[in-house]
Design a protein around this nucleic acid. Structure first.
Length: 515
RNA sequence: GGUGACGUGGCCGAGUGGUCAGGCAGAGGCCUGCAAAGCCUCCUACGGCGGUUCGAAUCCGCCCGUCACCUCCA
């Protein structure tokens, strides 16, 4: 069948448009990454998952993909900074907060970058082709700022260098914040640089020799403005024209409006065709915040033992002590990226069960492939249709709830097949692999095999001997009709956190799911 | 004040003019010594008020509500 048309909502035009890459069947896009001053939370990852799904959908269509996804490891200004140029930025604040942990600001950045990449892999996100760091491109940024000054798009004051928004057309088009007066009208708690020519002008370079990260420039020691790094790194790796740019909705203004302005000035015209923004998620119906107690970092959930305050996480479906990372990913797919999404632990629990169904089906299929029983393949065509449905849903502005619903139908098809012939198993394997390539919810694509077993594994191994004994005893009791004794044994196991299930193939047990 | 998004059953969430979303929870049934799991069936909603139409959750208007951004938070 012919491929569906890949459509995405473009913030620039307020319309869902067919994605037509500049280079045929080669999608080139830039994703705004995190500032690494703390552990990433699940909301951060919602937008990275969006970028990952764009990649996967494009690849499913047979396209090549080049994705640049940056890490912002330069601490940028907080509002306090504008009041007091010697004040702290977010990274500096973090360093002050956790002084003993890190030798210096670069150590802190390195630590949180590594943690971010761990989370990235845990959530089964595919690697970008280029992952540039802002600190590695300061020279490029300086050159860009110099060029902007030389071409009359920027000017200097004694506090820094500013981009002149009047020097280009249509500043603020992306966000709709086009009126200077309206920007001024808002009650902003910001002290302006009196040298600024227009209240909308934004910093390209900040003069500040005392900043913890500073570089030499024609304007003295200082550090680059926030917006310039993405312009420079995007154009450096993707050229003056590329297809698409992703980020969280908060970046629409000012970050992306400023980036568009800079790119226009540097490239002589528009650089990006499609702007895709991910909506913030809420948790339990409220804005995620530490004071509400509904703030979850990724590692809070998937690795609670290593987190300092994990007591507030009522963990559903623990797996080796934490939430199954794929369940977290699956949960994030339960809402379309462009709509407000209410993240709840209830949804997470459900997601864990669904992900387990994919795993179980996958194991069953592998066994059936090994057994390779002769027989017909009654499920192949159905699974093929199911995949088409999933891909069509993804192409429809990343309709992940519809895609996962279709995927669930597929796994149900496999579950309901009485016996899997070798042929049917092969079809199922093919479907599971393609489903995983598209949605990443069946198994991790990163090597996460842990050489050293976790404590939970060890205690499970220690327990399993006695569990088997108890189970055998219970089976004997059941055979003799001593159900009271059998139930008592089951209660004992239950108290140990072991759940017993009688199946046609004999009793099975699993660690009990908590919530 | 400005800008942008969104309001679907107990809950989460698809659906853009007329026949199905799906999941979770709940009810009944099959299976089971009893459970668990699984399977089958049931539960029929579209913020409010107008309008367009033979017909609207779906299009238009107004209102109400929620969320986000408005100089560095994905």
């Amino acid at each position: 069948m012919s491929s569906p048309t890949f459509r995405l909502y473009n913030t620039l035009t307020h319309e869902t448009e067919p994605v037509e890459p500049i280079e045929e069947e080669h999608l080139r896009f830039y994703s705004c990454g995190p500032t690494v001053y703390t552990y990433a939370h699940i909301g951060n990852f919602r937008s990275f998952v969006t970028a990952d799904l764009i990649r996967r959908t494009a690849e499913a269509l047979g396209w090549d993909v080049t994705n640049v996804s940056n890490v912002t490891d330069v601490g940028h200004l907080t509002q306090d900074d504008l009041v007091d140029p010697g004040g702290a930025d977010k990274m500096q604040q973090a360093l002050e907060r956790e002084g003993e942990r890190f030798a210096n600001i670069y150590d802190l950045a390195r630590h949180y970058t590594e943690a971010f990449l761990d989370d990235w892999r845990a959530l089964n996100l595919r690697e970008p082709e280029v992952r540039p760091r802002a600190t590695e491109h300061v020279t490029d940024q300086l050159e860009a700022v110099i060029e902007l000054v030389e071409t009359g798009h920027a000017y200097t004051t004694d506090r820094g260098v500013y981009f002149s928004v009047d020097s280009i057309d249509d500043y603020g088009h992306l966000s709709g914040n086009t009126e200077a007066e309206q920007l001024q009208a808002t009650d902003r708690d910001v002290v302006e640089d009196p040298g600024k020519q227009d209240p909308r002008d934004f910093a390209l370079w900040k003069h500040d020799p005392d900043h913890l990260m500073h570089w030499h420039s024609p304007w003295g020691w200082g550090f680059p403005g926030w917006h310039i790094e993405c312009s420079v790194m995007g154009m450096r790796y993707l050229g003056n024209r590329f297809d698409l740019h992703t980020g969280g909705e908060d970046l629409i203004f000012p970050h992306h409006d400023c980036e568009i302005a800079q790119n226009k000035a540097l490239a002589g015209g528009p650089t990006v065709n499609y702007w895709v923004h991910t909506r913030f998620l809420q948790v339990e119906g409220k804005k995620m915040s530490k004071s509400e107690g509904n703030f979850y970092t990724v590692r809070d959930l998937i690795n609670p033992d290593s987190s300092r305050d994990d007591h507030h996480v009522p963990l559903p479906l623990r797996k080796n002590g934490g939430v199954d990372p794929l369940a977290l990913r699956y949960t994030l797919l339960q809402g379309q990226y462009r709509k407000p999404f209410n993240f709840t632990l209830d949804t997470l629990e459900t997601a864990a069960r669904h992900v387990q169904r994919f795993r179980d089906a996958s194991e069953r299929v592998d066994d059936a492939i090994e057994a390779d029983v002769d027989g017909p393949d009654p499920i192949g065509p159905e699974l093929g249709d199911c995949y088409d449905e999933m891909l069509a849903a993804m192409c429809d502005d990343l309709n992940t709830p519809a895609a996962t619903a279709a995927a669930l139908d597929g796994v149900k098809t496999i579950e309901q097949a009485d016996r899997l012939s070798g042929a049917a198993a092969y079809s199922a394997r093919h479907w599971l692999d393609r489903t995983n390539a598209l949605l990443g919810i069946v198994k991790s694509e990163h090597d996460t095999s842990d050489a050293s077993p976790s404590e939970a594994d060890l205690s499970a191994a220690h327990l399993s001997g006695s569990i088997d004994e108890l189970l055998a005893e219970r089976e004997a009791a059941r055979k003799d009709g001593e159900y009271a004794r059998a139930d008592a044994i089951r209660d004992t196991l239950d108290a140990l956190g072991i759940e017993v299930m009688d199946t046609p193939d004999g009793p099975q047990w699993d660690r009990k799911r908590e919530l």
